[in-house]
């Protein structure tokens, strides 16, 4: 492979990816790598989770978060993260019809 050079972009990206993975080595001066950590707290077991996806990273998160935010709010799929329409802040979405456009109007709620 070392004598071949990809001429299309996708192959170039794949090659760059392989190089990156090979470079990703923790030196002997450090403790053995322990893999990605999933923080304490909320909804780590949903896939995707709120803070992290099922692999412990952010690549699989619902993105941008504003796109589906109001679905989280209905009966509250994410009760510890987003206000729920049933009890806390029923009118949370009142000031912005589409979160993706009006996201600056979204309230932070203290129940």
């Amino acid at each position: 492979m070392k004598h071949l050079k990809p001429i299309n972009q996708k192959a170039g990206r794949i090659e760059a990816q392989i190089v990156r993975e090979q470079l990703d080595v923790v030196g002997l001066e450090s403790a053995p790598p322990t893999g990605p950590h999933i923080p304490m707290g909320c909804s780590l077991v949903f896939a995707p989770g709120w803070e992290v996806d099922s692999s412990g990273g952010t690549a699989g998160l619902c993105q941008p978060v504003e796109r589906d935010l109001f679905d989280c709010h209905l009966a509250c799929f994410w009760p510890a993260h987003v206000p729920d329409q049933l009890n806390h802040a029923q009118d949370w979405t009142g000031r912005c019809a589409a979160a993706q456009k009006d996201w600056r109007k979204i309230d932070l709620v203290f129940p």
Partner: peptide, 21 residues
């Protein structure tokens, strides 16, 4: 040895909470 010494940590930068209890 190994000067300079190097170490790293995993940082997750994630979305806000929309509700704070």
């Amino acid at each position: 040895a190994n000067n300079p010494l190097r170490a790293r940590a995993h940082l997750i930068v994630t979305v806000p909470l929309y509700l704070k209890f």
